[in-house]
Amino acid sequence: MKYLLLINAGELDVSGGVVGCEPEDWMRFDKEIQDAGVVVAAESLADLVTATRVQVANDGKRTVTDGPYAETREVLGGFYVVDVPDLDAALDWAAKCPGSRGGGSVVVRPVAEF
């Protein structure tokens, strides 16, 4: 079963990295999860200041705005889609992910099956 792991960054330190999760931790985690053969897709997202929001009204009018900027303290920073037997396996990967540390969180969403 496929699960989306949404990685929400925690508190940012001055240099922009997540407190308590060094780049080496991310590299180690990425190697481990890739080697396990469970990754369907994975990306990390560029800084939030590069984000743009698009909305289309009922009359077809397109509105493009800068942002959104996080009003909450958590910012979506990247994701993995993993294919694992059950929720417990997905939760184990989420717990290993450095994004779950340093005040961040990983939200696990099953991918709908049609």
Binding site: M1, P85, D86, L87, D88, V108, P110
Partner: peptide, 10 residues
């Protein structure tokens, strides 16, 4: 069912 919480003993 939807999130496939397993029926297993940890």
């Amino acid at each position: 069912r939807g999130a496939r919480i397993p029926f297993r003993v940890p």
